[in-house]
């Protein structure tokens, strides 16, 4: 029982730690995004009409930051070559992008946005 509990707490602890604070909810305008850098990775965090979402911050087609891309409805368009991804699923919707974009869970706690990085 002791071992089980310990493991359980350990898992919970790890999982709590992986929620990284991005900023306050009012730092993003609706239907827009902000770039968030953590360690050596870049993410994009979006505010859509129904909540906050997060994806990798670099296009899967060429190494370009998506922070300068256009958010339209549930889609982000790469500013360099106009590849389009669904923000919620990461699905590559329009060429030249053909590899999906990785997405991350997002939660809001006390007006602060957190993303869960694995």
């Amino acid at each position: 029982m002791y071992l089980f509990s310990k493991n359980r707490y350990y898992i919970q602890f790890m999982s709590e730690e992986n929620w990284i604070e991005v900023g306050s909810t009012d730092s993003i305008e609706e239907e827009d995004l902000i770039r968030f850098d953590h360690q050596d990775k870049t993410f994009c965090v979006y505010k859509l009409t129904d909540g906050f979402y997060a994806t990798d911050g670099i296009c899967t087609h060429e190494a370009v930051h998506l922070e300068d891309g256009l958010v339209m409805d549930d889609e982000i368009e790469c500013p360099m070559h106009q590849g389009i991804f669904n923000i919620k699923s990461g699905e590559a919707l329009s060429p030249p992008a053909c590899e999906d974009l990785k997405t991350y869970p997002v939660k809001v706690d006390n007006d602060k946005i957190f993303i869960k990085i694995d």
Partner: peptide, 11 residues
């Protein structure tokens, strides 16, 4: 610089 004008050009 790479990407900076993409959004406005697309708009």
């Amino acid at each position: 610089i790479a990407g900076k004008i993409g959004r406005d050009i697309r708009i």
